[in-house]
Amino acid sequence: MSLVLSQAINAIMLGCTYSLVGIGFSLFFGVMDIVVFCAGDVAIFAAFSITALVSIVGLYAALNLALPPFLSTVLIVIAGASLTGVLMLALYRLVIKPFENKSALMPLLSTIASGVALRELIGIFYPQGRNPQTFPQLLPGGALSDFAMISWRNLIIIVATLLLVALLYLFVNKTKIGLSIQAVSQNREAAIMVGINWQQVVLITFLLGGFILGIGGFLVASYYDVVRFDMGSMYGLKGFCAAVVGGLGNVYGAIVGGLLIAFIEVFVSAFVPGGTAYASVAAFLMVVLFILFKPEGVIGEKTIEKV
């Protein structure tokens, strides 16, 4: 029994990391109706910038002189995430905006290409960037207690994910700009007609999405203790899967989707004999089946295409 429980914890942790990228995908898709494929790479970019801030610039040590460790961690994470927010804006301007109102294939390809470019830029310009980098330990690592199988760090990751989602919920439902994001994602034309500044909404969505991806990248890297320049592709793909399984465009669905994929991966590798090598295969097969037979996702509504 304890084996099942500890595997469930593993799955929940993995699910959290997938969900965060999934949320990014869904947010962009909801507002813009496009898939921003470089989301995974953007998240890893955040992890690399945080690594750079800590181990090259030495910001953490400097902050620690004046502040308690917890606060300096939060500040560094916010700095890294803001950087990714800005990066996302730049990406929007360079590789997404030119393809508005054009065939869906084009922004998909351009974001895939920019994901590759981002990855390679890290590999080339980060010192020793092609080698895996040890991620600085900013979260306390020890076990919570002897009985619980969960460590401090894992608890923080789960709580941070939940907190982020809660904040996102409040932002989207309680603030004016959040409501306009919702309005745009429901019906762009109508939203523009009632006087919503669409361009502004898009910019804010990308800033926000970049910020969330940044925090996602931080949590992932903390969980794995390591960042690789090419981690973003697989991570982004799993995030995309999470978003689709949860219903593309549905932010909360992405969490369910992420957990579902993580559970399948973990349980296949733990309980199917020789299953470790097939964990990803099982997860992707599930995604394919989902798209074929329940494309609206776990908690999405079925839409009928009007001619």
Binding site: S2, Q7, R228, A270, G274, T276, A277
Partner: peptide, 21 residues
């Protein structure tokens, strides 16, 4: 037991939990 992993994989906790047991 024999477990096969991908190069570039980062999460080995499911395998390790199993081996621990």
């Amino acid at each position: 037991s024999i477990d096969e992993i991908q190069v570039g994989q980062n999460d080995f906790r499911p395998i390790l939990s199993k081996i621990k047991a």
